[in-house]
Design a protein around this nucleic acid. Structure first.
Lengths: 371, 371
DNA sequence: GTTAGCACTCGACGCAATAGAGTGCTAACA
DNA sequence: TGTTAGCACTCTATTGCGTCGAGTGCTAAC
């Protein structure tokens, strides 16, 4: 705990101010610090130090006769050096909750890898903030586990592919009625042999010749089927987003103005923006914290984002981001994301949590500083 | 246009009051009516009539020196007898919008029948209110078009079923590794033959014997596979909900209080409640309007719901409901739902709209009165 | 039956006075 | 030299009060 321009006492006071502000959401005055946090100093001394901290840019004043609130620079120092993580979840998920999550992770399957979606729900519940999940790598490196063309009715079929994160993509195919179900199955089997185990990015249009030759189906008749398969692959390459707990923004006093709240919720609906937001942070493998205007999305200047990317057995499941007001409870958010990491990467077996002992005790070398 | 207790003049005035209130969202006074709506009457006369209307329960006063606002009884009469529907959409969807909708309806496929979901998006955009869509019949009467078990990797497979509304359900299967892909295919083919064309409700557990006998696979080994298929069927029987434009609630002055808005948005997230809400109205085939406390959900007393159920070729696609403040623009909502009906039931070909000439001209025998 | 006129009611708005929280500064103190 | 007590000052939030205006209900005249 050292800093080029701040001594121990200043840092203690800064930490106390931010802790208190996170807790109360109100500007904090020198008297409060002197009384609530036992520093052995009078309010006057703390006042002087706070004036210094303001001059250095770590704190600011909404107006002359109010207490201080942290600046972005203050938060930055706080998350990098000051905050304590122990015991920040405050409560443990109940056994039922865990059982529920466990069941859903094992049994459900859908467009997005459900593990990451369920994890996102859990994070939102633990933190009381909005959580945004984006699916897997979505960079073409996912592998295809299986592919099948299912005949549905004359002239109609369904293309299905399963990816390595167990997510499923499908697309309807309208084809020439002359193609029999048997022929479709033959095409299906051939394509499966051809693609299974390969990366999405490796699949090219040239395959159509090979399939046509191997199955004896005319190229033109085959086109719709191939198109359907490609549509699946295109879907696999699309990043998917899932937002959980958007309403929670309305609980924060920062957004008690309906106009502001509306602005944020509208942004949350913009999937393209959210993908950018989370993806930009997901380059690193550790936790990434972006404070206030550090994220580049217009209208999210008063928000912070904390993201964590999850992989199981080398397969990138996706990235979960927590979005909340700049004054969010960073320790709690970091604790929640770390907690979920243990749950996910420790295999799919969700045991009862052993409290927060698993979390890094004090400072946090694990947090990657961005920008 | 007749009513046991109201003469023509009273009804005209009531209609004028409600039209104006829907437009301005402010209590409307006698002077406004006299000036804006050319009735050939002085404000004093209208004042007297309005006092009568209040006494009869069609209008009410927020406070002594304010204008009148419609009561639920007033709205009821309005939607049943008074409102005019012509030209209420006010604008037509642009060609690009229609093209977009068309493309999505044809190409996408997913858990919920996409037609109904895309239609719901359109309704929300046309009305500027929140739209809630629930999927198909979900009463066990849907037919299975196709069923297939897709081998994914040793010990893992995927069950896929396609229903008659072209929605797809799937479930992951963890099975005995001893079952080879070939055996799985055999099971798959057998089940498909057994189930295709049948209703979901007809499928019973007894099938396991038949499948076991026909394929020569031991019953116990077959269990996980059958379970997977049943999970699909269970999903098919689950009603799915899709909410569109929830944020739009924040645009209505009625919900400029964040607490109120939060309450509503939280209700909107309660899928079970929304299903009940929409389902309850979807018994009828026509449009159903529920005003204020006519719907039974606590916390939705200040909201109205208008629902329409859509079927194509006898297959029930689902029900779309519009949820908005009691003071919603009923004519516009009805017009939008009817417009979408023409689009959906007129086949999937979405031509450019021919204006609102297609809408019923005046009174609306098509609207089912509930309760 | 309709209308003009008028007194009355009640919320919305603007303004000034007040209370309270917190600061910065100065002077005294260890 | 660093710390603290005291005090004047600043600024916000709240409250109370007077005014304005919209709209009503009632009465009397047409």
């Amino acid at each position: 705990m050292a800093n080029e321009e701040l001594d121990y006492r200043k840092m203690s006071i800064l930490k106390a101010v931010i802790d208190d502000y996170i807790e109360t959401q109100e500007p904090v005055g020198s008297r409060t610090i002197a009384k609530k946090y036992d520093m052995g100093l009078s309010s006057a001394t703390i006042r002087n130090e706070m004036a210094d901290l303001e001059e250095l840019g770590y704190l600011s004043q909404p107006h002359t006769s109010a207490g201080r609130i942290p600046s972005e620079k203050g938060y930055r120092l706080y998350v990098d050096k000051l905050m304590k993580l122990e015991d920040k979840l405050g409560f443990e998920p109940t056994a039922e909750e865990l059982e529920d999550v466990k069941v859903r992770m094992q049994h459900e399957i859908g467009e997005m890898s459900d593990q990451i979606r369920v994890a996102s729900e859990l994070v939102s519940r633990l933190t009381e903030y909005t959580s945004i999940a984006i699916s897997g790598a979505a960079d073409g490196t996912q592998r295809i586990k299986a592919l099948q063309v299912v005949p549905v009715e004359p002239g109609k079929a369904l293309a299905v592919i399963v990816l390595d994160d167990d997510s499923v993509k499908n697309a309807i195919i309208q084809h020439d009625k002359a193609i029999s179900p048997e022929t479709l199955m033959k095409v299906s089997t051939h394509c499966n042999l051809l693609f299974a185990g390969h990366r999405v990015e490796e699949i090219s249009m040239n395959m159509i010749n090979s399939v046509s030759e191997a199955t004896g189906v005319a190229r033109t008749a085959l086109m719709p089927v191939i198109d359907g398969i490609f549509e699946c692959i295109k879907k696999a390459a699309d990043t998917e987003v899932h937002t959980e707990g958007a309403v929670k923004f309305l609980s924060h006093p920062e957004f008690s103005d309906v106009g502001k709240a509306k602005g944020i919720l509208e942004l949350l609906n913009r999937e393209d923006l959210m993908i950018d937001l989370i993806k930009e942070c997901s380059t690193s493998d550790g936790l990434v914290i972006r404070i206030g205007s550090e994220n580049k999305i217009e209208g999210l200047n008063e928000c912070s984002v904390v993201t964590a990317t999850y992989s199981v057995n080398g397969v990138k499941l996706g990235t979960i981001g927590v979005l909340g007001p700049t004054r969010m409870d960073y320790p709690r958010v970091v604790a929640a994301l770390e907690y979920v990491r243990k749950r996910l990467t420790g295999g799919s077996n969700l045991e009862a949590p052993e409290g927060m002992a698993m979390l890094p005790g004090g400072g946090s070398a694990e947090i990657t500083e961005v920008k």
